[in-house]
Design a protein around this nucleic acid. Structure first.
Lengths: 350, 350
DNA sequence: TTGAAAGCGCTAACAG
DNA sequence: CTGTTAGCGCTTTCAA
């Protein structure tokens, strides 16, 4: 149906006007004064011919492609790439842009990642959205070449590029607050070992929420494990089977959904029903996991969609000059996580 | 580092030759006879200036963009999009192509999906890879406009477009064979309700494998449930708690990983250890699920990566005229599934 | 063996 | 109010 061979020229002759006029009306050029009749003639001619602009030629002429490059590390193994692409695509589409997506390997050499970026640059993308595999400090391939770039879910080494990240501390706080609101006062934390920033940010949020409620965070049961199902199971067992059963927490906040899954198993083995005997909140909103668990898991959802949409918006603003270099904020922008309430939280047993 | 403002012209003056010559050597034009010295001059000049071709201008001139359009239905909620993008990207990159990815909604009107395709067509993509949300009969938006298209993991209504699909029957057969090899003879099937083609194809594979082994498929315990965790649980309970305990199967093949997850729970409740008392094989290889279960789940992996790579290759072949319209095969191409062996299968108790 | 020149389809001065 | 024209950066006849 669309375009194929008819160009602006064909529309022009069909409408009996010049190409200029066609270009003017089709692009709604501000200062071009064209009579309404002519406008209609052009419009209907274009319609009838099924004209679609050749975005390639447009881009060449305007020095702007309307394409955003999206570099995704390990696209196949990162569970949230879909949400990032969707967020970026929605934001892009809304402003007439499209996405050129390219995979890159987080483990590959910097040169190889540089080549991936170069491919995008040769295509003259208007901006680049870089999505690291995990929230970490990225050694960013030289995006020098004058196109704006934004980092989604990570920070750049040396903060050379604006970045968006989830506000994990506030997300963790929201999770704990939900537990507090349900009436829990003895809340345990299943922590991830290692010094990943995420681990401590979520823990800080946990402590902050407790402190705000006038509870002693220092007394809360906290155990660590590897950031997976097994680690969650082990940490969960340690918390749930203490020397003194009276100390048993009535709720657990887990570093991530996988660890929450492990905690479920620990609880099951110890004869604790969820949420009857024990409420659990996770972090990450890996839907497959969260909705498959029984009961389904209440968890904190990082704003992948929102971060990507924000990033795409920033890029477009920068391209279109809507905003100056002020956007090159030094500190990463933090976006709120949202608590997804499912069935793993209930009021504690009296 | 890359390109920016230097064009072929700059390289030409720097090398003291004409643009024609530069174009000839940089593109390694077959019939162009250029002296080796000139070649070197050009090459080094290009290198020094950090020249990169403007793919836009190239495309306009050559009438070929080197871009493959990838339309993905519900990109955010389809667990395998990552693998599809990776497969297509690897295949594309290998031949100098890139991917323009656009999300579309499987539930939206045909017009809205048509608009998404049109955006790609306006960009003059060389081919379109369409990936439906699930393996179903797709009402494909008119891709008439002369660009080749391939359907990945679905079939087109009226078979207007070549398609690739997983060979589910053979995948199911491989799963059951693994169970047979381990020594199982009483194998149950956890089926998905509904008349989805997948459900019956996997069931057919199950029966075929049994028949090949000389076993009576008709006598095998088969129960159905909704294609999720709960359905798997319910069907699992029915199979595992029969009137006559002697009939208990020693292994279960499940329609998908989610149902397998439900079967795990059913087994646990009935005091059956996996894989000691009961072996289980799933289908789908949703890594988050399969690797998170305890024990990790042996499952059949559909060739998402391979299908996308195959599709991209087909498109490029078609574009480059390597292949005639012969590729417009009527029957969908079937690609083998692979069995991913993990820890949920063992030899049966004697 | 190399170069001049004509476009690919479109936009944006600049004239009328 | 509308039309002429010169490119955007590159490829590709055709001539030298």
């Amino acid at each position: 149906m669309s375009s194929k061979n008819i160009g602006i020229k064909d529309v022009a002759t069909a409408a009996g006007v010049s190409v200029t006029t066609v270009s003017h009306v089709l692009n709604e050029v501000p200062h071009a004064r064209v009579s309404p009749e002519t406008r209609n003639k052009v419009r209907s001619a274009a319609e009838q011919l099924g004209y679609g602009p050749n975005r390639l030629a447009q881009a060449l002429r305007r020095q702007r492609t309307g394409i955003l490059g999206v570099v995704i590390e390990d696209v196949a193994t990162t569970p949230h790439t879909g949400r990032i692409i969707l967020g970026a695509d929605d934001a892009a589409k809304a402003r007439g842009y499209n996405l050129m997506v390219i995979n890159t390997s987080s483990s590959a050499s910097l040169e190889s990642r540089e080549a991936d970026v170069k491919a995008l640059l040769d295509r003259r993308v208007d901006g680049i959205l870089y999505a690291p595999a995990c929230l970490r400090n990225v050694e960013l391939p030289g995006i020098a070449a004058g196109v704006p770039a934004v980092l989604v879910n990570g920070v750049a080494e040396g903060a050379t590029v604006p970045a968006v990240m989830p506000d994990e501390a506030s997300g963790a706080r929201a999770a704990v607050q939900a537990l507090l609101e349900a009436g829990h006062t003895r809340i345990g934390f299943v922590k991830a070992t290692g010094d990943a920033p995420s681990a401590s940010r979520r823990f800080q949020g946990f402590l902050a929420a407790l402190a705000e409620a006038g509870l002693d965070g220092g007394a809360a049961p906290v155990e660590s494990g590897a950031a997976g199902v097994q680690g969650g199971y082990e940490a969960g067992r340690r918390i749930l089977a203490p020397e003194d059963r009276a100390d048993l927490p009535t709720a657990l906040f887990c570093h991530n959904d996988l660890m929450a899954m492990g905690a479920y198993r620990a609880a099951a083995e110890l004869g604790l029903a969820i949420p009857g005997d024990l409420s659990i909140v996770g972090f990450g909103d890996q839907d497959l996991i969260a909705t498959s668990l029984q009961p389904s898991l209440t968890t904190v959802a990082p704003p992948y969609y929102g971060m990507a949409a924000w990033a795409a918006g920033q890029l477009i603003d920068a391209v279109e000059g809507t905003v100056g270099p002020a956007s090159t904020a030094q500190a990463p922008t933090l976006l709120d996580c949202t608590l997804v309430r499912r069935d793993s939280v209930a009021v504690p047993r009296p």
